[in-house]
Design a protein around this nucleic acid. Structure first.
Lengths: 346, 346
DNA sequence: TTGTAAGCGTTATCAG
DNA sequence: CTGATAACGCTTACAA
């Protein structure tokens, strides 16, 4: 710390300065900038000239207060530090930019109370609309949103199939092809590795789908472990499941990240994948195809989800209509991490 | 689209409603909320009670206009869809949240003009401070920031070693250990794969470091290719370099992502890594250790960068002092993707 | 300590 | 089409 940063801070030009410079009234200047077609070309030109001469940049704060619109959309995600959410944010932001709105994204780190607090912050910021991940939230969250009548969308999961305001996949249904695939390869005893079912609805629904399908295909779920949804969580999961010792020939993971960690630990332990152990993931992040062997996983339409979320938001904001829910599809991507179990020991 | 979203929109309570409910003046209510210690306990209690009764949530718009502070920090990154920037955002946000500020992050997608436009948007939002990636920007960006006297920090690269306001690594120096390592393994002819040196200063400085070090260690750079900094860019890079045909035994990549793509393409082509080709990356993202073979790369202190950036921002905002620049260290992480070149054909 | 009142920088209404 | 003028919701001297 050494140099002084601001001295007297020459005040930034405001709209009234522009108006004065252009020789028009405040109102005319305002209209010239926000509704250029409703003023005379003369006026418009004069205002524009004054703007560039003064280097005027309109204050969104003032504008927000007067117009009751911040042009900000709030988003609360579990974490930004996860490729699925990062790319969702990235894509959504791109759509919103087209409508000259910006995305204010906050991370709750898988904590319900934090999520509720962040939503309140965003309400305080007077965002024009809000996007939440999933449909399972602290009751206070939805209460608040309804009370202040803030348009909101829930995305990612559509398992409980609400009629409107949700855009997402069926986590439950998404697991069926996975289990079918694993069963078809001849596996009979599997393990499952996911997040915390209590706090994570995606884990919960995927688990539900697995159980249904396992029953249908006469697969035995030897163990279900919950770990942090990180690489290290996956490694930890390998230790906890100890697949070989417990007779599993396949582990179904509820995210690619966790699968990557599990795969790493399995190979460190000298297992052959898929010879000794088959592994599946969920999300189909870029990493999945780069692993050795590349990961069999479920592809989720994140970009499309982002695009449709953006479109819906724009619609909601202009029409004040609540959009009908949208169910997006998923698909099984079979790669090298799954195969038939060895019938004989090596 | 079917249900009506808002009806008459009951107006949200404002501070004057709270004041009325609490039986105090507007000013007192304001002070009770923003400077709780400066009012009588009685008043404070009454205001708080009114707040919760009415479900009052202060408007940041109003507050921003009156206090001339949005509690928002602007950040412009190349892309959010890249683990290094995603985790930087995540970590920085966490630090800022501690100071009850929020991060508004925008992506310019490696386009200088877009970056300039985004900075102007953020200035329009009246963010309290701004963070830019790198020191190489359109002149208009810095001009604007200086003109409006907005505190800003530049992070990531510190190659041109400015005295203040920059937090980052030396990309140039970071490459020396890589080249030394490659040379020590016995390589003599290498290829280099990075982004576009014209628009990407990180690529430029890393390239500079490689050239210096290559000369020093008597390595020949057979080819330098510029590709998009994506997995597919890396794959494309493999085709363009065609390392074996051109006599290279190692390719030095300027980011892990690109290295991952190159590695994938190399293995697809049947090459043995590192037997036929050694590969190095840069960043040490999580992916690096999961590849097969795991990637030799340069570890960058992203979390520390984020933490120090956050701390500096807080300091700048409270003290109005421009922080002295900070140079952070990097380190070579040797893993399995580098080894001695085969002296004989197989 | 508390109340009063003057902004903060726009937009929007409503006469001219 | 333009120009006053009143909001918008809050902070902050200043006075009481």
């Amino acid at each position: 710390m050494n140099y002084r940063l601001r001295t007297k801070s020459a005040p930034r030009p405001r709209l009234s300065d522009v108006a004065k410079e252009a020789g028009v009234s405040l109102g005319a200047a305002s209209k010239a900038l926000s509704h250029p077609t409703t003023v005379r070309p003369n006026t418009l030109a004069a205002v524009r000239k004054a703007v560039s001469k003064l280097g005027y940049i309109p204050s969104e704060s003032g504008r927000a207060l007067a117009s009751q619109s911040t042009r900000l959309v709030g988003l609360v995600v579990p974490t930004i530090n996860n490729p699925v959410f990062a790319s969702f944010i990235h894509d959504l932001q791109k759509v919103l930019a087209g409508g000259s709105r910006q995305l204010l994204a906050l991370a709750h780190e898988y904590d319900r109370a934090t999520e509720a607090a962040l939503v309140e912050r965003l309400v305080g910021r007077r965002v024009d609309a809000m996007v939440l991940i999933g449909t399972d939230h602290d009751p206070s969250v939805i209460d608040l949103l309804e009370r202040v009548r803030l348009p909101y969308l829930r995305v990612w999961s559509m398992d409980d199939a609400p009629e409107s305001g949700v855009i997402g996949i069926s986590n439950r249904n998404a697991m069926h092809p996975v289990i079918k695939h694993v069963a078809a390869l001849g596996h009979r005893k599997i393990g499952v590795l996911g997040g915390d079912a209590v706090s994570n609805e995606r884990t919960r629904w995927r688990l539900a789908g697995i159980r249904e399908a396992a029953q249908e295909h006469h697969l035995t779920i030897v163990a279900e472990e919950a770990v942090p949804l990180t690489i290290n969580g996956g490694r930890e999961g390998f230790r906890r499941l100890d697949p070989l010792a417990n007779g599993m020939t396949a582990v179904v993971c509820l995210t690619d990240i966790v699968a990557a960690g599990l795969l790493d630990a399995a190979r460190q332990a000298g297992l052959d994948v898929p010879g000794d152990l088959s592994i599946t993931g969920f999300d189909d992040i870029e990493l999945a195809q780069l692993l050795s062997p590349p990961l069999t996983t479920v592809s989720t339409p994140i970009s499309e989800m982002a695009r449709r979320t953006g479109d819906c938001l724009m619609d909601m904001l202009s029409s004040h209509l609540l959009p009908r829910s949208i169910l997006l599809g998923t698909s099984l991507v079979v790669r090298g991490s799954t195969g038939s179990p060895r019938t004989e020991p090596i």
